[in-house]
Design a protein around this nucleic acid. Sequence first.
DNA 1: TCAAAAGTGTTCAGGGTACACCCATGG
DNA 2: CCATGGGTGTACCCTGAACACTTTTGA
Lengths: 224, 224
Amino acid sequence: MTAFYREHDRFIVSVDCVIFGLYNGRLSILLTRRKFEPEMGRWSLMGGFVKENESVDDAAKRVLFDLTGLENVFMRQVHTFGAVDRDPGARVISVCYCALINVDEHDYKRVRSHDANWIDMAEMPELGFDHHDMVENALRMLKRRFASEPIAFSLLPRFFTLTQLQQLYEVVVGDSIDKRNFRKRVAENPCIEKTELIDKTMSRRGAALYRYNDKLGSQSRFHI
Amino acid sequence: MTAFYREHDRFIVSVDCVIFGLYNGRLSILLTRRKFEPEMGRWSLMGGFVKENESVDDAAKRVLFDLTGLENVFMRQVHTFGAVDRDPGARVISVCYCALINVDEHDYKRVRSHDANWIDMAEMPELGFDHHDMVENALRMLKRRFASEPIAFSLLPRFFTLTQLQQLYEVVVGDSIDKRNFRKRVAENPCIEKTELIDKTMSRRGAALYRYNDKLGSQSRFHI
DNA sequence: TCAAAAGTGTTCAGGGTACACCCATGG
DNA sequence: CCATGGGTGTACCCTGAACACTTTTGA
């Protein structure tokens, strides 16, 4: 390190992850109760500290993996929170990330061992620190991105019905969507391919299974 | 500080400011040549280090003020860049901000003393580190926000003509706009008030002067 | 035969875009 | 009288939203 850098103040840097999940058909968020002061016992986001030998993005991935066992999920940086006294325990600059996962795919045991709970977004408790701001920011970003990027498909099985896809959009957007309009847009999108397969688990009649094809490059977007 | 925090790695945190400006009718960016290693002599963004007793946002404001003498300008956090080796001189985590200013209002002497130059966006040189990513991100954010938030009015004099307003939008959006359609949208927007004043400096005929009124709360938006 | 989910088209309104000419004035 | 910038209205298209009934089949 050159002399120029030596003299500057240094900071603890953390990542706080807003982990959204689909938990029996509803949008939920992974929260834990803090196990140490300050604010011990208060609900809070999943956080961790950045280490010297990892990038900030990698720190976020590590935290997500530790908690859920999942890799390669939709994960984005939301904002960096750097107020001087945002954490009363110490000066900590926190980079907030958000992820959206399928609760069924993650590793329950990991979540349990971290004393984390899935909480329905409609019943979100008060959170410590500036975590409420983080959740608001993250949710706004999630809704925006979800409606314009093909995030949904990483949450569905490889083959899915249009009803499943629509329900997923409805949960995230937080509103109901007209079935015919929805299917019209799907039909116009070359990335969503109908297969010959039929799913009979949800109805007597059976529903056509579709597949997402991202090989279409820049066209692999789906804007509901 | 509780014992819990003591053991964590600490980082130098910087802010890098992408300062866009309107310089004789074109979108420009404020750049400087690095005066120390690594990458001495390379064009780079305006940066500074966060200090222990200031928030990250305040650090960005301080850097902007030091460079331009301006306060209360449109200034937003863009993204945090945290790759391990993004700065070959040391591990530095950098929070990127962007600002858009009116070049005529700032303090030239400050800029000069920092050896900073306004460079037309069309002629942007190669930058050191990950500064090119920062500029791309910042420009994308600026265009998005400029088209949906009333940023323009802080760059214009208190009274302005519709031609001035339109030219400003054209410069930032980087495309030309139909005059009649533009004026139609202005007319529909209650925040842009026509005054009785006439500006005769730009034409023989004279142009009506308008004023922005942000007292209309949530309606004080102008979406071109 | 009925319950439960799948599937299917049309209409309408509003917003966005394209487009060309007259006006006022100072020099 | 002319050069310069200021100012104005309409037609069309396309997208997005609203809306209800038929089909299939296992139990």
